[in-house]
């Protein structure tokens, strides 16, 4: 065997060693089952605690009650209306916050002067707990859709901006030097080196921005709204309907998880080149 083949074999090592069909099915089955163990256990505990009278049904309704409330809300189109209102303002606010977050983060990461200009102000604003802006936003924009969307945008902006700026700063300087050695112009360096190099950090920002956007949509709807899943929560509480509150909570959970899964899938697709444990686990699946 030639000397170089040794190193080639080493590199191929990751791809070889495929398990047999039975083991593969067993392993796949285990992989699919594992995430459901904890929720199923919690559901069991729920039923058990109602059965033994540890909690009262008016505090925690039974799963069948929640199911029938869910089907009723679904049948009347009420749930769809609330979900639609929430998703609309979430998406509008998220787009309004995340897009400038990426843009300003890139600018602040690449230009020292822009960072000096913008960053101290953003860091100052960041010191204010975001929900403390609510009264001011209501005064400025009135109790309407505008105030809610802007509030969500503010929530989404900060993590996206901060993570993008940090990601640009952490792009390997050796790669920038490489680009210089091969005569890349500033735009080529930006689009072929800095931007792709900071994508992992940008995605971290986009995902935490999304989870903050969900938090802010709830806050906005709890305080001032006449529709949306957050409104369902308040309404359920004031009408003593824990089943409606729980349907809303579960819908939030499904939507929040779903939207994050979508972003994570996009991230995996775009960042398949990463030399991380997660990327190689993904490749082997």
């Amino acid at each position: 065997m030639a000397v170089g083949d040794l190193s080639d074999l080493k590199a191929r090592g990751l791809r070889s060693g495929a398990p047999g069909p039975v083991r593969r099915i067993l392993r796949a089955g285990f992989g699919v089952t594992l995430p459901w163990v904890l929720p199923a256990g919690l559901l069991g505990l729920w039923v058990l605690s109602l059965d033994r009278g540890w909690v009262r049904p008016y505090q925690l309704p039974t799963p069948p009650t929640i199911m029938s409330t869910f089907l009723e809300l679904l049948g009347r189109g009420e749930l769809a209306r609330h979900v639609g209102a929430t998703l609309n303002r979430l998406l509008a606010g998220y787009a309004l916050g995340a897009a400038p977050g990426v843009l300003f983060g890139l600018l602040a990461g690449t230009s020292v002067n822009f960072r000096r200009f913008l960053d101290p102000t953003v860091q100052g604003l960041r010191a204010v707990p975001s929900l403390a802006w609510v009264p001011l936003f209501l005064l400025w924009f009135g109790i309407g859709e505008q105030a809610r969307v802007y509030l969500i945008a503010l929530g989404a902006f900060l993590p996206v901006y901060l993570n993008t700026m940090a990601a640009v700063g952490s792009v390997d300087r050796k790669l920038i030097e490489l680009a210089g050695a091969y005569g890349f112009g500033p735009l080529k360096i930006l689009f072929r080196v800095i931007l792709p190099g900071s994508m992992p950090g940008v995605f971290t920002g986009l995902r935490s921005g999304l989870s903050l956007a969900w938090m802010f949509v709830v806050a906005a709807e709890l305080i001032a709204a006449s529709n949306g899943l957050g409104f369902m929560l308040v309404e359920g509480q004031s009408t003593m309907r824990p089943d409606r509150v729980l349907v809303s909570l579960l819908t939030f959970a499904v939507l929040g998880r779903g939207s994050d899964t979508l972003l994570a899938a996009l991230e995996r697709r775009l960042l398949v080149w990463r030399d991380t444990l997660a990327a190689t686990q993904e490749e082997r699946r």
Binding site: K174, V193, P196, G197, M199, W273
Partner: peptide
Amino acid sequence: EPRLLPWL
């Protein structure tokens, strides 16, 4: 070091 761009 090779300095290959990891995303290409």
